[in-house]
Structure formats: structure tokens, C-alpha cells
Design a protein around this nucleic acid. Structure first.
Length: 350
DNA sequence: TCTGGGGTCCTTACTCTA
DNA sequence: TCTGTAGAGTAAGGACCC
């Protein structure tokens, strides 16, 4: 941002996965629907999206499917159909891009738009988006309008579903300060608990603290972020081009395994997948990391940086197995993962 | 009996080198 | 040559996001 007043819009699809399923199966409308895992709530997996009806039972995303089933035995459980949601997502992003090419894609169901140079009031642009998205996909979204990305995101969250909310800098004290600290992006369950210990419950409580006080207790970088964010100050720009920094695959076993061979077999499969994605995107990598999570959820990672960049499966596999060899598998293994970092685009012909 | 998968970013520790 | 140190690169773990 260059100092000029900015108008940023945050568009967030309402219960996206569940809403797409309801488009395909209208008989699900008005019923508690949970999307997650392979759709079997007796198996390992977590909730990706719960319809608003399911949320009334206390079901929310990231909750284990087994817990969701207990809370809501009448819920309809469906598997995640990522291909279908991606197809709909592309349609929505196309509409948004037509409204403003200064668009930042944030995952499958949300985006930021810089509409500073669009004529007319921003509410008009927001209404135009909502109408077009509904007309062309049958889905509703919530839109937040603000001078920066942080406030735009918080705005879209204030009124859901099908909301339209504006936050100006002068509204921060009235609209943002009364909210729980957890409502600030970047504050997760751990930070929330830590803040509570410090006597901080709301965003206003954070804003009441000095910069040094926050930095002493929460670290230099995060302390500064909280100090600014609680005042609605945030300067990160709209990112229109994105390059991945890592490519990874992981697998949670249906039952924890104790045989090294099972872990090794899974690792080999995952690496083949990772290498496939690398080739697809035209990337080569320098560092390979292996992750092992045990039944008690304790997690180990081991990394190996290679002498040069590669997308050769054999080389990646050798590095990964060397990492695996450095770990003691004394407990049953729940999850195995493979990741490559230090990515660069492969030069043509090489 | 819980707790996915694919990412990003931050902090801390360690090692090597200038 | 010895010693201390700063900085870069690497490694490991953790928090967070969708």
C-alpha cells in the first residue's frame, strides 16, 4: 500500500463445501450436513465444513468426525469432493477477477480484491459481486469492506451468512475492540489461552497494552503484529502472483502401525506423489523432510539438504530414507509425511 | 475413543565460516 | 595462531490458516 486510501474487499463463501453439495442434492437443503474425510464418521478424519443446521448441534470445522457423530447422530456425513469444489471455485474466482484483476486468491473459498480504483461506492461493487455469484452459481457469500486486508476479513466474518459489512478505521473501537481476542486472525487456541493467562480477553484488552509489554511476553514479531492489528493497522499488500514454497503429502493410518516396513512403503508412495506434483509444476527441490507422528501425537521431523536441486524420484527417495533411518520408531506410528522445500523452477531442457 | 491434509511463517538451536 | 563473534545456512518444532 502506498499511503493512498485503499478499499479492500474480502469475499468469503458461506459453508462452501456443504453449500456445493446442496446444489447437487437439493433434498439436503435445510438439513444438518457435515463434509469431511471419506464421509464415514466412524473412521479417522475431521470436519471440513458443517452446514449452518449442523453447527446448531455444536459441530464445527476441524472437529473429529467421531465427535461430530456423537453431537449430531442425525447429521448427514459426506466425503470431501475436492474436484467439484475446485470447479465451482474457478467459476467464482473468474467473476471476482472480472470485477478487479487485483485479486488475491486465499484458498478455495475466499479472496481479497483491491477495488480502490473502481468508480462508485464500494457497497455497490460488493452487491454486484454477491448478485453475480448467486446468479451464476446459486451460492451465497459474505463480503467485508475495509481499508486493509485484516479489517476486510474481520468484516466479512461479522455478518454471516450472506452478509455485507463495512469497517472504517473510525469503527475499530466500536466494532472490533469488544470481540474476543481469538477473532483476531493469527490468534489460535494456544495464543488465546496464553493471552487469557495474561488477563487479556478481548481485542480491546490487547489494544490497551503497550508495544513493549506485548513484545516482552509474545515475542518481537508477534507482539508488534498484535499491537498494530488490535488497532486495525495492517499493511500487507494484495498478492496476485503466488509460487509454492513447499510440496508435501502425508498419510494418517487408519490404525497405528508398528512395522517399519509399513511406514517405509507409505513413505515411498507419498514421495512418488510429491515428485509427480513437482514435475507437474515444473519444480525441483533441494531439501527433503520426513515427518513421523506417533500414536500419542508426538511428532518428529528429519531433513536432508542435497548438494543440488533435483526432481529425480530416486534421489529424493534416498534422502527421505536416510532421514527415516535417523528416527527411532519405538512407538506405534500414526502418520507419515514427506515434504520438499527449497523449490525453484526447472530450467527448460534441464 | 479424540485430533486430516496441504500449506505458511516464526523461533530457537546448531554449525560452519569469515 | 588463538579467540571471540557475527551472519548465513540448516535443522527441528510449533502455531496458525483454509
Amino acid at each position: 500500500m502506498d499511503g493512498k486510501a485503499c478499499t479492500i474487499l474480502h469475499v468469503d463463501m458461506d459453508a462452501f463445501f456443504a453449500s456445493v453439495e446442496m446444489l447437487r442434492r437439493p433434498e439436503l437443503k435445510g438439513r444438518p450436513v457435515v463434509i469431511g474425510g471419506d464421509g464415514d464418521p466412524t473412521k479417522r478424519g475431521v470436519v471440513s465444513t458443517a452446514s449452518y443446521e449442523a453447527r446448531k448441534f455444536g459441530v464445527h470445522s476441524a472437529m473429529p468426525l467421531r465427535t461430530a457423530l456423537k453431537l449430531c447422530p442425525a447429521c448427514i456425513f459426506l466425503p470431501v469432493d475436492y474436484n467439484e469444489y475446485s470447479r465451482v471455485s474457478v467459476k467464482i474466482k473468474k467473476i471476482l477477477f472480472e470485477v478487479s484483476p487485483l485479486m488475491e486468491d486465499v484458498g478455495i473459498d475466499e479472496a481479497y480484491l483491491d477495488i480502490s480504483s473502481r468508480p462508485g461506492p464500494p457497497e455497490e461493487t460488493a452487491m454486484l459481486i454477491k448478485e453475480r455469484v448467486f446468479r451464476e452459481t446459486g451460492l451465497t457469500c459474505s463480503v467485508g469492506i475495509a481499508p486493509n486486508k485484516l479489517l476486510a476479513k474481520m468484516a466479512s466474518d461479522l455478518q454471516k451468512p450472506d452478509g455485507l459489512t463495512i469497517i472504517r478505521m473510525e469503527d475499530v473501537e466500536r466494532l472490533i475492540w469488544p470481540l474476543g481476542a481469538r477473532k483476531l486472525p493469527g490468534v489460535g487456541p494456544k495464543t488465546e489461552a496464553c493471552l487469557k493467562e495474561l488477563g487479556i480477553n478481548t481485542i480491546g484488552d490487547i489494544a490497551a497494552k503497550g508495544l513493549e509489554w506485548l513484545q516482552d511476553r509474545l515475542g518481537k514479531s508477534f507482539g508488534l503484529y498484535l499491537y498494530d492489528a488490535s488497532r486495525g493497522i495492517h499493511e500487507s499488500p494484495i498478492i496476485t502472483e503466488w509460487q509454492p514454497k513447499s510440496i508435501s503429502r502425508e498419510e494418517t493410518f487408519e490404525l497405528d502401525v508398528s512395522e517399519w516396513q509399513a511406514v517405509a512403503r507409505s513413505l515411498a508412495f507419498l514421495l512418488r506423489d510429491v515428485a509427480g506434483s513437482m514435475r507437474e509444476g515444473g519444480y525441483e527441490a533441494r531439501t527433503v523432510t520426513v515427518k513421523i507422528r506417533f500414536g500419542d501425537f508426538s511428532t518428529l521431523t528429519r531433513a536432508r539438504t542435497l548438494a543440488s536441486w533435483t526432481d529425480d524420484l530416486d534421489v529424493l527417495r534416498k534422502a527421505a530414507f536416510e532421514c527415516l533411518g535417523r528416527m527411532e520408531l519405538k512407538k506405534k506410528v500414526r502418520l507419515v509425511g514427506a515434504r520438499v522445500t527449497g523449490l525453484r523452477r526447472k530450467s527448460k531442457g534441464g
